[in-house]
Design a protein around this nucleic acid. Structure first.
Length: 769
DNA sequence: GACCTGCTGCGGTCTG
């Protein structure tokens, strides 16, 4: 948006939407010096002025915020007390960004703007509560806090509400927090005594926008109007670079030649493949502003440290800075500010923390270690680069694969990290991205919302609670019978969460009182307890509590090396001092689900013959080797490979179907382990597994409930622990498994192996070369 | 075989 002598009103082509705005809003636009409204604004303004629910989608920095607030502030009216517009945002940092952006516009239109989140002073919130008006920017958790703590007194705050805006709608889709938000919006409508209050969703462009509409108005997605920004994306330059990690040398060889080049990869950084990646990263990224997505916090620390060290060795100033969720807010803001405002080149080495809409400006290039978690994440990341007209987005993916060796697992020869990277890129270039998971039962969050509704109302009948949460709200797949079962197990907990008063009203039991009065009740997600890492009185960040840390131990953190001085278990503080040698700390976590479509693309790549130009020389020869191994392992024909004392099943399906197959095999007395792309079954041969798979394919397999019982450690969500085994199984069936696909998955493994009837000589994967 | 997000109100003490 550059200054220009010509204002919007001079241009007849823009008079359409511009002319619909109120005079103060038009004057504000002119004062910005905009020469025209953006495409998405042109089309969103009439849609929002017409009323009803609207999803506005466009790429980052396309002007979505103004596209929503120009028309909303134009039509908001009435002098009665109460908030006119509530805008819910997933991050405190985004609320602060938005407030700076919207303050002038809101003021010009005569409406006050309130920020409302945990870092906003209690006095500012009290002022807003006592004199509610205009626009409030708020987090879901703070909205929950208002409903909980104000109870019936919250009604005047929302009675005159004219619209709800959901910022970064895509960040809520398919998540537990998204269900919470949907329930909150229903409760706000109920407390305002209104059937519907207009909802405006601001979203990144997704593969299927109908799913965003369903998220904005659960149960009535088709009534939501979609406005998609048409700003053309810039040219994308992609490269996938391969790196071979040499085979681990035998133990005695390590003992005799510990420092020999090409020896076994070690965690202290003497892994030659890691060093080659670091050296190329330094060469490619230095001198510009970039993002490097390293995948895990541990990798972020390892790469940031190695790149910083390399800068030191080269005698140049450091340009590489770690950024992840365990680092202090102050440090992260410093990195964000440097990326955005500092002319000096810098690269943030980050996890997913820099994927969301935090304003860091345009970066020159995006680099990534490994395939990443999904196509939609890759798209978000790439959207950070090449936004200026005339520039192109640059993406480089660095993939390390082990060298084929005598001790290697046969499946490793397929180079699935490289193949998944290629599949993810191909899906993205083809315009596809993952849809959110099908709606589950979300009973953990229903436990939370039931408690919250009781606190908010001071007591409510089961019938009325069901009507709001399940009838109108997001828990539509929970019928009255199942809700009664849920209330029963909430009541039968060792310390009851709910009790029934003589009049039939639901009240909190002692267990419910304890949960609802706790500080962490406002959020529906769990956070593990953590130690604060402190140096010289400054908090550097936090580390998970379960990590055993002892004085004298060294670690890499914030991209620098430290020695632990003291661990204070009571205060949960780790005191550290700088040191010279260290290893990155471990964090825990598990991988997210892989979609069927990406896995199908992987198979297409392995069975195909064309070599994409985006591969570098090493990646090309890796692909050639992987295709050779694919044929040699017989995977063109069969999806069963004998390995060691067991078999590997490769049905080429995504995580949920793979987990379902593994659960069925457990229930049928096998010993499977579901890996990222395949299932390993120990102590079993081809004949026996084919017999089992044939039974499954024929429909002779355990019931859904038996499959759910075979899933290890099913409790994941915050209040899962309060569900009965029956309800927990129902949750697992609806959210973790795809039982309807089981017969087909088994058939896929069998059907591709029609050349190998039971009794045929099975294909034997040689571990010899 | 990963990541990220959030948080009230009250009563006490201190300061200008």
């Amino acid at each position: 948006m550059t200054n220009s002598p010509r204002s919007v009103s001079d241009r007849t082509s823009s008079v359409g939407a511009f002319g619909l705005l109120s005079e103060p809003a038009r004057r504000w636009v002119e004062r910005q010096g905009w020469t025209s409204l953006r495409d998405v604004q042109e089309r969103a303004i009439p849609a929002i002025l017409a009323g009803g629910d609207v999803v506005v989608s466009a790429r980052t920095a396309a002007g979505k915020t103004e596209a929503a607030f120009l028309p909303l502030l134009t039509k908001v009216e009435g002098d009665a007390a109460g908030f006119r517009i509530v805008c819910v945002s997933p991050l405190k940092a985004l609320i602060n960004d938005q407030a700076n952006r919207l303050e002038g516009l809101a003021e010009a239109c005569g409406h006050p703007l309130h920020r409302w989140h945990g870092d906003v002073s209690a006095s500012a919130k009290r002022r807003a509560r006592e004199n509610p008006s205009g626009v409030v920017l708020i987090t879901p958790e703070s909205l929950e806090a208002i409903l909980l703590r104000q109870g019936v007194h919250a009604r005047p705050l929302f009675a005159g509400l004219q619209a709800v805006v959901v910022d970064e709608l895509h960040a809520f889709i398919g998540t537990e927090r998204g269900i919470h938000l949907q329930s909150l919006l229903t409760r706000v409508e109920a407390i305002a005594g209104r059937d519907r209050i207009d909802r405006i969703g601001l979203s990144a462009t997704l593969g299927d926008m109908a799913l965003a509409a369903d998220c904005l108005r659960p149960g009535d997605g088709p009534s939501v109007r979609l406005v998609e920004g048409r700003d053309a994306g810039n040219v994308v330059k992609v490269q996938i670079r391969g790196y071979v990690r040499p085979t681990r040398v035998p133990e005695d060889a390590i003992a005799s030649s510990r420092h020999a080049p090409g020896a076994s990869p070690r965690e202290d950084g003497s892994d030659p493949a890691f060093e080659a990646v670091v050296s190329d990263l330094g060469r490619i990224l230095r001198g510009r502003t970039n993002l490097l997505f390293a995948g895990s916090r541990r990798n972020v620390e390892a790469y940031a440290d190695a790149l910083t060290t390399a800068c030191g060795s080269a005698g140049v100033p450091n340009e590489f800075f770690a950024h992840h969720g365990n680092l202090s807010r102050a440090h992260r803001e410093e990195v964000e500010t440097r990326l955005r405002d500092d002319p000096r080149p810098s690269t943030a080495v980050a996890t997913t923390t820099l994927e969301l809409g935090i304003d860091i400006g345009d970066v020159a290039a995006v680099a990534q270690i490994g395939p990443g978690s999904s196509v939609s994440s890759l798209r978000q990341r790439l959207g950070r680069s090449g936004r200026r007209p005339g520039t192109s987005a640059e993406l480089r993916i660095f993939v390390i694969e082990d060298e084929d060796g005598p001790a290697a697992h046969p499946i490793d020869r397929l180079k699935l990290g490289l193949i998944q990277s290629m599949a993810t890129v191909d899906c993205m270039l083809g315009g596809w991205c993952e849809p959110p998971p099908a709606a589950g039962l979300h009973l953990s969050t229903l436990v939370h919302q039931t408690l919250a509704l009781i606190v908010q109302t001071g007591g409510i009948s089961a019938k009325a609670a069901w009507a709001i949460l399940c009838g109108r709200g997001p828990f539509r797949s929970v019928d009255r019978v199942r809700y009664a079962a849920l209330l029963r197990c909430m009541h039968e907990a060792r310390s009851p969460l709910v009790e029934q008063a003589p009049g039939g009203q639901l009240m909190l039991g002692p267990g419910g009182e304890r949960l609802a009065s706790g500080h962490d009740f406002y959020a529906v997600f769990v956070t593990p307890e953590e130690y604060r890492v402190v140096h010289g009185g400054q908090t550097l960040g936090t580390l998970p509590l379960d990590r055993i840390t002892l004085p004298g131990q060294t670690m890499i953190f914030v991209g620098r090396r430290w020695r632990v001085l003291e661990v204070d278990a009571d205060a949960r503080v780790i005191l550290v001092e700088p040191t010279s040698a260290a290893m990155p700390p471990r964090f825990d976590g598990s991988a997210g689900p892989l979609h069927d479509h990406v896995v199908a693309e992987m198979r297409r790549i392995l069975s195909g013959g064309d070599v994409p130009t985006y591969l570098d020389q090493t990646a090309r020869s890796m692909l050639e080797g992987a295709r050779h191994a694919y044929r040699e392992l017989g995977l063109e024909a069969a999806s069963v490979v004998e390995v060691g004392t067991g078999v590997v099943l490769v049905p080429w399906v995504g995580t949920r179907k793979l987990d379902t197959l593994a659960a069925a095999l457990v229930a049928m007395q096998h010993k499977p382990a579901a890996r990222r792309h395949f299932v390993e079954v120990d102590g079993c041969d081809t004949v026996r597994i084919r017999r089992t798979l044939a039974r499954i394919a024929g429909g002779d397999h355990p019931s859904d409930a038996a499959l759910a019982s075979a899933v290890p450690s099913p409790a994941i969500a915050k209040y899962d622990g309060w569900l009965s085994p029956d309800l927990m199984r129902a949750v697992v069936i609806s959210e973790r498994l795809e039982t309807a696909s089981l017969r087909e998955t088994a058939s896929r493994v069998l059907a591709s192996g029609t050349d190998h009837e039971p009794g045929d000589t099975p294909h034997r994967a040689g571990t010899e070369t």
